[in-house]
């Protein structure tokens, strides 16, 4: 039987599930680019819960925060991918388990 309306909790559960999928991606993958994409998944999961709260509580602050999170995510994407590029140029790999120059 389908419910006749969607309570806020459904959006929060969906957001938690998406966040955990992102966490699993970050801890289990080796490719730095895919780790980076999993980070984006986590950011978007948080954005979803922010917008859900904003719409259900009638407060615009949540959508403002999403706007700023997107700006920070764009900055993070530019710098993160530049780091991956610089790393590949020096080590010829994007697999994080082969990069151990900080180990001693």
């Amino acid at each position: 039987m389908m419910p006749t309306h969607i309570p806020l909790d459904y959006y929060l559960i969906l957001s938690a599930v998406l966040f955990v999928i992102g966490v699993v991606g970050v801890v289990t993958r080796r490719n730095a680019i895919i780790i980076f994409m999993s980070l984006e998944l986590m950011l978007n999961a948080v954005n979803l819960s922010m917008v859900a709260f904003s719409s259900y509580l009638g407060d615009i602050a949540g959508q403002m925060f999403v706007f700023f999170i997107m700006a920070v995510a764009a900055a993070e994407a530019a710098v993160g991918l530049a780091i991956v590029l610089a790393l590949f140029r020096n080590k010829q790999t994007v697999y994080v388990d082969e990069i151990n120059i900080m180990k001693w």
Binding site: H5, P7, L8, D9, L12, I13, A16, V17, F19, V20, S54, S55, Y56, L57, G58, I60, Q63
Partner: peptide
């Protein structure tokens, strides 16, 4: 995470706020 969401009390917000349409 899933258990904490499922076991917590329902928030009680069942429909969109009436301001949401213009917000």
């Amino acid at each position: 995470m899933i258990a904490s969401v499922l076991l917590s009390k329902p928030t009680g917000y069942n429909t969109l706020h009436e301001r949401a349409a213009t917000m």
